[in-house]
Amino acid sequence: MTANQQIILDNRPQGEAVESNFKLVQGTVPALQDGQVLVRHHYLSLDPYMRGRMNDAKSYAAPQPLGEVMQGGTVGEVVDSRHPKYQAGDKVVGMGGWQEYSVVDGNAPGALRKVDTTHVPLSYYLGAVGMPGVTAWYGLVKIINPKAGETVVVSAATGAVGSAFAALAKARGCRVVGIAGGPDKCRYATEELGFDACIDYREHPDLKSMARALKEACPDGIDGYFENVGGYIFDAVLLRTNAFARVALCGMIAGYDGQPLPLANPALILVNRLKIEGFIVSEHMEVWGEALAELAGLVAAGKLRPRETISEGLASAPSAFLGLLKGKNFGKQLVKLTP
């Protein structure tokens, strides 16, 4: 029996999440049954949506069960297989969770996908050429649907979703403005990701200041907004929207600890005839093939150069995750599980 370190959700957060909500446990890998595949994880993905699932509250996804392995995306290598489609050595992406190994039903739709690492590094399949990249693609292409020359804005601009959004929007001829935390992230946004401008929210910590910065960065107003944060930043963006602007509502990280996020001026939705649409990318599997093909092409062409923050070892996952929620990561947050 192979030992398998795992991190479970031990108890639910009371307000802000803390490391003691998680527990590192020692498990074992069960013997494979027919149709199953054993995967050794190389990287584990950490994503903001996981915070919402830690709460026992009604949402678009069921809460993370207590006492079970934290759920999340993984990339790794097949080490044993009793399924004809998968062989040892295959590189795969799946939802293996916060553990070193997972046993996967090879017949379950979408549970495991083989990936090509010739031109795209394995870790990118958890970021730019994975769920975050497809999230950016769907919000931009299917909801904002911009025309060349329009101005689009994205919050959390240098994260896995924001960086992909910039490359996709620039490919469509848009003016792209980002909102990120700190001068280093803003410099990276403009110098490496191709943003036309980036606003440091730490320099603009309130509605009035942020609205003024957006007015300067978006002299022709805002035609499309990709929302990851909520709070006063959303309020400031709404003040600068043009008539018939479109908002893709992906995340509200400012409210993940449970506090409400009221809008300061909801009448702007009517005045500017805004289209605001929330979406969950896993409900739109029909677009993944098209989106992943474009994203892989952008990476191969050097037009999408995502950064990664990599934490070492499974035990580091809780602290790295809590850091992600506070914006301490730079780019996609991963945990490396192999030497």
Rank of each mutant, 00 (worst) to 15 (best):
A3C: 08
Q5W: 03
Q5Y: 06
I7H: 06
L9K: 04
R12P: 08
Q14I: 12
Q14V: 13
V18N: 15
K23Y: 03
G27H: 14
V29S: 00
P30D: 01
Q33A: 09
Q33W: 00
D34S: 13
G35A: 05
Q36L: 01
L38W: 00
L38T: 01
V39I: 14
L44W: 05
R51T: 03
R53T: 10
A57T: 14
Y60A: 11
A61F: 15
Q64Y: 03
G67W: 09
E68A: 15
M70G: 02
Q71T: 12
G73P: 00
V75C: 05
V78M: 01
S81D: 02
H83R: 01
Q87G: 02
A88V: 04
A88L: 11
K91F: 11
G96M: 02
S102G: 07
D105N: 15
G106R: 08
N107Y: 11
A108C: 11
G110L: 07
A111N: 10
L112G: 00
L112C: 09
L112Q: 02
K114I: 08
T117Q: 12
T118R: 14
S123V: 04
S123L: 06
G127Y: 02
G127S: 12
A128W: 02
V129A: 13
M131T: 08
M131E: 09
T135N: 08
G139T: 01
I143D: 04
I144F: 09
P146E: 02
K147W: 05
E150P: 05
V153H: 06
S155A: 15
G162S: 10
A166D: 04
A166W: 03
A166C: 15
A167R: 03
K170I: 01
R172T: 05
C174S: 04
C174W: 00
A180D: 00
P183M: 12
D184H: 07
C186V: 14
E191V: 13
I199L: 04
D200W: 07
Y201S: 07
Y201W: 09
D206I: 13
K208A: 14
K208H: 11
E216L: 10
A217L: 09
C218K: 11
P219W: 14
G221P: 12
D223K: 05
Y225A: 01
F226Y: 10
G230F: 12
F234L: 13
D235F: 06
A236T: 04
F244V: 10
L249T: 04
C250W: 02
I253G: 04
Y256D: 07
Q259E: 13
Q259H: 15
Q259R: 15
I269A: 05
V271N: 06
V271K: 09
V271F: 03
L274Y: 12
I276K: 15
E286S: 14
E286R: 13
G289V: 06
E290H: 14
A296T: 09
G297F: 10
A300D: 14
K303R: 15
P306K: 06
I310Y: 03
S311Y: 01
L314A: 06
A315Y: 07
A315H: 09
S316Q: 12
A317R: 11
P318C: 13
P318L: 10
L322V: 11
G323L: 06
G323K: 08
L325F: 11
N329L: 05
Q333S: 15
Q333C: 10
L334D: 02
L337P: 00
L337K: 03
T338I: 12
P339G: 11
